[in-house]
């Protein structure tokens, strides 16, 4: 087993764990840290699956995209709570 395969196995196991924790958590806002772990693991795995220079941009775009999405969901949730 090369270091790349070992690292891919670790990333994939963490992604599965985080995905299951996202569904099991009942509080909506507390789901977001688990979603963040999941996107870390997926961004690491796509780099390990296909090492190519464009993959750096793909991983960064994916990671920044999910971060922006979490930011927007949490901000809208906070605004909605305040207005009620």
């Amino acid at each position: 087993m090369t270091p790349e395969e070992a690292a891919l196995t670790v990333c994939v196991v963490v992604a599965a764990y985080a995905g299951i924790r996202v569904l099991l958590e009942r509080n909506t806002v507390k789901k977001l840290p688990f979603l963040n772990v999941c996107s870390f693991a997926v961004a690491g795995s796509i780099v390990l699956i296909l090492p190519h220079p464009l993959t750096i941009i793909a991983a960064a775009a994916y990671f920044i995209g999910t971060t922006l999405e979490s930011n927007a969901i949490a901000s809208t949730y906070a605004g909605g709570i305040r207005e009620e």
């Binding site: 270091p3 790349e4 070992a6 690292a7 670790v10 990333c11 963490v14 764990y17 985080a18 963040n36 772990v37 870390f40 693991a41 690491g44 780099v47 390990l48």
Partner: peptide, 12 residues
């Protein structure tokens, strides 16, 4: 590659 896996464990 070990650092990619290590950072995933650290954020976990």
């Amino acid at each position: 590659a070990s650092f990619i896996a290590g950072m995933v464990i650290a954020i976990l």
